[in-house]
Amino acid sequence: MKRPGPLLTLLAGLVLGLFMLTLNATSGTKTASSSYREESPSASPKTPAKTSPTPSVTPSPSPTPSPSKPSVANANYAGRTDDDAASVAVSVRDGKAVAYFCDGRYKEAWLRGRVNNDGSMKLTAPNGAVLDGKIEQGKKIRGTVKDEGRPYTFTADKAVKPSGLWRATAKVRGAKIDGGWIVLPNGRQTGIVTRDGKTASAPRIDPETGTVTVDGQQLTARPVTP
């Protein structure tokens, strides 16, 4: 029996080598593929969308209430006491009032104070006199002036210039002059001039111009407002 020749042995070795080469190539490919999949970075997680912060709402400051305006109209009033012993004039401006009480001889008082929204008022004078009154429908003031302990009730009707309250101050021949006048709607005048603290009846003024002559010198009286 003849032994296989060297050629057969070589062929067998060649086939075996090819088989092993093919097996290694296949295994290497799978390994590389598997390795690639394992080494490939995993999908990055989705970055959450940035949310813009909600702007804080600053509360609007509460509007400051505007101061209430006086409900009483500006006007002048002039009249007589019920016993016809004296005159009373009142000037109302922007919720304030000034009044003059005068008997035309020696009794007088300048009074000031506030007017309430209902038209009531309580005015006071440095000499202690007090006026309590109320505006009625914007047409007149009814009230009482208490001076030196005596009450005088009065009614003062709405007055239009030249009626109303007038005053003049000046120095005449070295004396301090202070004069007050009430001009009634019918033209009647009541006034007192004080010379260095001494009172006397006042001369008449020209209600159209306010001019008046005191002790030979011409002065100008002006309407009085608070």
Rank of each mutant, 00 (worst) to 15 (best):
V145Q: 01
T199A: 15
A221C: 06
D147W: 03
D84P: 00
K161E: 08
A109W: 01
V57Q: 13
K176A: 09
G138K: 08
A175Q: 15
T225D: 03
L219R: 10
L123N: 05
A89Y: 07
I205K: 09
V172T: 08
R222I: 04
A43S: 05
T190G: 00
T199E: 13
S33R: 08
T194H: 00
L11Y: 06
P126I: 06
T51M: 01
Y100A: 07
V92G: 07
K30E: 12
T220Y: 05
P203E: 07
D215E: 15
R3V: 15
G216A: 09
L7Y: 11
G191E: 04
V193A: 10
Y152R: 02
G180S: 01
S163Y: 04
D215I: 02
T144H: 03
G210S: 13
K158G: 03
R80Q: 14
A170Y: 05
S120D: 01
S91G: 07
S42E: 09
T26I: 14
K69D: 06
V15D: 02
D94Y: 08
E108V: 00
F154V: 06
S68L: 12
G210M: 12
T153A: 13
L23A: 15
P207L: 12
P203W: 06
K158W: 05
F19Q: 12
P63E: 10
P70L: 02
K176P: 00
I135F: 01
Y77I: 08
R167S: 11
R114N: 14
P162N: 05
K146F: 00
V115T: 11
G17W: 06
P6I: 13
V214Y: 02
W181D: 03
A32I: 11
T144F: 05
N76A: 13
R167A: 12
P185T: 04
N186M: 02
T211L: 14
N127R: 08
Y77M: 10
V92P: 06
V15W: 03
V172R: 06
